[in-house]
Structure formats: C-alpha cells, structure tokens
Design a protein around this nucleic acid. Structure first.
Lengths: 193, 193
DNA sequence: ACCTGAACACCGTTCAAGT
DNA sequence: ACCTGAACACCGTTCAAGT
C-alpha cells in the first residue's frame, strides 16, 4: 500500500493519491486498506515516516563520512545532504513537507525532526566555541539555514525555479551556492564588531 | 464565488474547498459555477489572482512610503512587506503559493511575480552601483532573499514554527530579524576580499 | 484475522431542459 | 444569458457478511 501510494504521488502529485486506486493496484477491495490504516491521512503518514527515515539516514551517512571535518564544515555537509536528498527525492520530500495531509505529531516524525534540529544546534555551538564563526545566536542561524534550505527545496518541487530565473537542472547547484553564501557570512564580522 | 472559496479555505485549508459547497453557500445549484469558471482550478486561480493583486499593492504601497530611502533600505522594506503580508494573510498566501491547485501561468500571476522579481533585481543593482553593498551577483542575492522569505512564510502557514522552536506570535518578528541578518551580510566583505 | 461488496455521503463536471 | 437538476464517474469510510 505504501509503495502504491508513492507510485501515485509520482504520477500526479500528492492530491492524486486515492485509497481506492491504491487498493485497486494492490488487488484488493476499496474497504480493505482501512483494516490496516485508520484513514487516508494515516496511510500518507506512513509514507512520510518512511521518507523521514530515509532523509535521516542520508544526513547521518553524510555526517559520518565527514566525521573529521570541523563543526562548521559538518554543518555545511548537513545542509548539502538535506538539499541533495530533497532535490533527488521530490516525491518523498513533498510528503514530509505537506503537513496538511499527514499527522506530523505522530509516528516519530516530530522526534526525527527534532534530532536533526538538535544536531544543527550542537554543530553551531561547537563552531562558536572553537571560534570558527562569529558569536551569533545559534537558534537564529539554524532557523535561517532551515528556512533557506526549505524554501529552496519547496520552490524546486513546486516548479517555481523557472519563474525566478533558474533552470531546473541548475537548481541544486544554485541552492548549494546560496547555502554556502549564508554559511560563509557566519564567519565574517558583523556591523559594529 | 470567490468570497465563498476564501471563506472555505479560512475554515479548513485549501483542500477543504469544494465547488459544490461554495455553490450551496452562494445559493445556487452544483453545476451553476461551471458557467463562470471552467473548473475548480480556474476558481482557485481567480482567488490567487485577487490575492496576488493585494500582495503587489501592499508591496508597492510600502515602497512608495519609503521612496526617499536608499536602494538597500528599500530592498529591506520590500522583504518586510512580503513577510508582513504573508503572515497577516495566511489564507491568501496559501493560495498563491500552492501551485498544484492553480494555473500560475495564467491570469497575470506570472507577470505580477516577474514585476516583484524585477524590482528586487533593480534595487540590488542600484545598491551595488552606489557601493551600498559588496559586489555580489544580484541574481543570487535576490534568490537567497526570496528563498528565505518564502521558506519562513511557508513554515509559518504550515504550522512548522513550533517544531523549530518559535512561538507563532513571535514568528513575524523572528522572520524580520533573519531577513535583516541576510541583508546586512551583503554589506560585509566576503572571504578573500 | 483478513477480505468482500454493498452502502452512505460526499466530490468535479456535463448537459438537456427550463426561465 | 443564466440556472436547475439529473446524471456520471469518481472519492473516503463503514460494516455486515463471508473465508
């Protein structure tokens, strides 16, 4: 059922998912899925949980590969990993980020989100402690990075890049460059310093 | 019909809109709206066109009030105006930004979007010419601002702020602060300069 | 324990027929 | 010119009945 749902999203976006159609593809009657998923929302939440697990694994793998790098470089790696995963898996990213159709509080989605968030904060605090970056509010810097990366990823999956002058095939590269600009700015003295 | 659609979105988000329910509220039969709107998408596109007109007016008013400010300050004003409008009119913002349910290429939506984009580019180029900011790619700076502001606005309307540690009532203030950080970074020397 | 298949209350959309 | 109201092909969800 989860696979069938993913296939339907791939074909026509998230609102093209119908429990009935997914059931038909699995070869089962319209009512059968409701023995396994309480509702359509629960089905999409299961898809989201799977997607979030993949995103988390992708990020953790990238961080493990960069274990020797400085905190700020690891922060950058985390951002890159997020962007690469979102741009490379638009279907799964769409489900995670469209909270109107899933139950984000449930199924460890919030917990996984918080783990990423804590990791970002921790890396930023280490970077400050090592004087790798200027003394900034780690919360603000993290939120700025998250908002930038999330904004870019959503613009990409919503097909907004062209109307802002970016060819889709150049989008990931551009996104990385903008993230770099933001992260590099953390290292430069602020007005008045 | 447009008003009824807005009311339905206000009550239950964009996917709670049904042409039949809107027709019922207007006191008309289920098929009647289809004489005036080709499809549900066309109806929501009409809502989006109205919303985009309001956003454009809001931004142009803010810029007119700041006509004496420097280009960079006007750029900031434009960003503030976008954030204030998006946070203050979540229903209308949702329609503009959910491109899966509207026809963005039609009805001047793209044109209005391009006008805002051109205005941002122009202000940035003036700011560079006046040496108000470092010499950067105006395209990159614009896209970074757009992605940050859009990301923040979507996080807000999707209810994601709490899971990133921001109380909703502090969200606009935080968003403005992060936009300030980004814009101020344009004034500081880059690595290697 | 799991599925079927009918049923209910909804959809978007079309279209003859009415005024 | 505009609306009605029935119709069609869909939905999500429930539930008795079957295996």
């Amino acid at each position: 059922m989860v696979e069938a749902a993913v296939a339907l999203i791939e074909e026509g976006g998230i609102e093209a998912v119908s429990v009935r159609e997914a059931a038909k593809r699995v070869g089962v009657s319209p009512g059968a899925p409701f023995r396994h998923f309480e509702s359509k929302t629960a089905l999409l939440t299961a898809v989201a949980t799977e997607a979030m697990a993949r995103l988390t694994r992708h990020i953790e793998q990238a961080l493990a590969d960069a274990a020797d790098a400085t905190p700020l470089e690891q922060y950058r790696v985390l951002g890159y990993a997020f962007l690469a995963w979102a741009f490379g898996n638009p279907t799964h990213f769409e489900v995670i980020s469209t909270r109107a159709v899933i139950d984000f509080e449930a199924s460890g989605l919030l917990a996984a989100n918080n783990r990423i968030r804590d990791r970002m904060l921790q890396l930023l605090k280490e970077a400050v402690a090592r004087r790798e970056i200027m003394s900034v509010s780690a919360e603000d810097a993290m939120l700025a990075t998250r908002a930038l990366a999330y904004g870019l990823a959503r613009m990409y999956i919503d097909g907004q890049m062209p109307s802002w002058g970016i060819e889709p095939q150049a989008a990931l590269q551009t996104a990385r460059r903008l993230l770099d600009m933001q992260i590099d700015a953390l290292r430069r003295p602020r007005r008045g310093d």
